[in-house]
Write a protein that binds this DNA or RNA. Structure first.
Length: 361
DNA sequence: AAGCAGTCCAACCGCCGCGAT
DNA sequence: AATCGCGGCGGTTGGACTGCT
């Protein structure tokens, strides 16, 4: 069943706002507030606009203390680091940058920051070597560790956990384990019916109390938005470094995931054998890129598109290159690495957090 | 000066989650 | 429990602007 449109589209004006419309909307909201009903707002004001359009105009342009353009290096860092950590959650990223709107940040990322990051990367030996068929896993690992951007790219794929069809949520895509390991996991799962407190304790549990959760979820963001996703809690629980990058837990002994998924995780880690312990180095290199300390980068602008093509080529070669794995039983080629749903190479401590996150959802 | 391509960004679109009924 | 309406969000679009040939 289709949803009724939020407004009469035939009688609604579209396109750029006139100064008169802006003034009317701004004056009304400053005087009366939104009244908790954006849909009814334009009628009250006498604007031939969709309520959603009014809301957007207010939030992105008319609202007081909005900053446009002129992003600082610090803001660049925060945006990039948060993007690496949580993906395209623009509203959350915007919440960390007072005066910035999600739309602004999204545009800024898409038009400038992404290019700033990707564009400076030399078409490195990673590409030169790995576009050949039959990648040898160790050489892949070496190339990977030499390139913060590829790691950045992979780390972004970690965010695909949010996708219910992702690798992590789809056991069919998981690498084969030793039968004994499978048995252990099955035993744990069968015991996890809530009746066994021991196992229950060992399995992941929400890491905030309900009260705290509600408090956070209802906490208004800078633009009045509410955060719905519990994943935000994870972000909130990740301390930021000076440059804004969330720290990834280096010790996971207290992580309940380890008691329940350790066998599989260990096996998976072994299967893939791709070192990813260098998130710190990633951060350093990211800082270098953002601050134009571009050791090893090609400064020439004419390399930029070639570097984009590098990724396009990698990601577009659906059949010729399974670039993240040599396990033919478990591969699931990604057609878009920014959005890939499969990244077994990333089996790090951080991933355990994401496992946990997945359970918490 | 004209045409073209690339860039930027405001605004739109459609989906989703949540609360109300 | 099911349905509906709204707010919120992220992806995409289209037009204005800019730079190059």
């Amino acid at each position: 069943m289709g949803r009724a449109p939020c407004c009469d589209k035939a009688n609604v004006k579209k396109g750029p706002w006139s100064p008169e419309e802006d003034a009317a909307l701004k004056a009304y909201i400053e005087k009366n507030g939104t009244g908790g009903n954006w849909i009814a707002l334009p009628q009250k004001i006498g604007l031939k606009r969709c309520g959603k359009s009014c809301r957007l105009r207010w939030l992105n342009y008319l609202r007081p203390n909005i900053k446009h353009g002129g992003f600082t290096e610090e803001e660049d860092n925060i945006i990039c680091n948060l993007y690496i950590s949580i993906g395209s959650r623009w509203s959350i990223i915007a919440a960390q940058l007072p005066g910035r709107t999600d739309n602004d940040i999204k545009n800024y990322w898409n038009t400038r920051l992404k290019k700033k990051l990707l564009g400076r990367r030399k078409q490195s030996n990673f590409n030169a070597k790995d576009t050949n068929n039959g990648i040898e896993e160790n050489s892949y690992s070496n190339a990977l560790s030499s390139s913060a951007l590829e790691r950045l790219q992979l780390h972004m794929q970690l965010q695909s956990l949010q996708n219910p069809f992702s690798f992590y949520n789809n056991p069919a895509l998981w690498p084969k384990l030793h039968p004994f390991q499978e048995k252990i996991i099955q035993s744990l799962q069968s015991l996890n019916d809530g009746s066994n407190p021991v196992v229950q304790d060992a399995l992941p549990s929400p890491h905030v109390e309900q009260g705290q959760k509600d408090e956070f979820i209802n906490k208004p963001q800078h633009d009045g938005a509410k955060i719905h996703s519990p994943q935000v809690q994870l972000l909130e629980n990740i301390p930021l470094s000076n440059s804004g990058v969330p720290f990834v837990a280096s010790e996971s002994n207290n992580n309940p995931m380890h008691s329940s998924l350790a066998p599989r995780a260990a096996a998976v880690e072994q299967t893939n054998n791709v070192g990813f312990q260098q998130l710190g180095a990633l951060q350093t290199e990211l800082d270098d890129i953002l601050n134009n300390r571009t050791m090893g980068y090609m400064p020439q602008e004419d390399h930029q598109m070639a570097e984009f093509d590098c990724f396009r080529e990698i990601n577009g070669s659906k059949d010729s290159l399974i670039w993240w794995s040599n396990d033919s039983d478990t591969r699931s080629a990604s057609s878009n690495s920014w959005d890939s749903s499969t990244t077994p190479a990333l089996l790090t401590q951080g991933m355990f957090q994401d496992y946990e996150l997945g359970y918490n959802l």
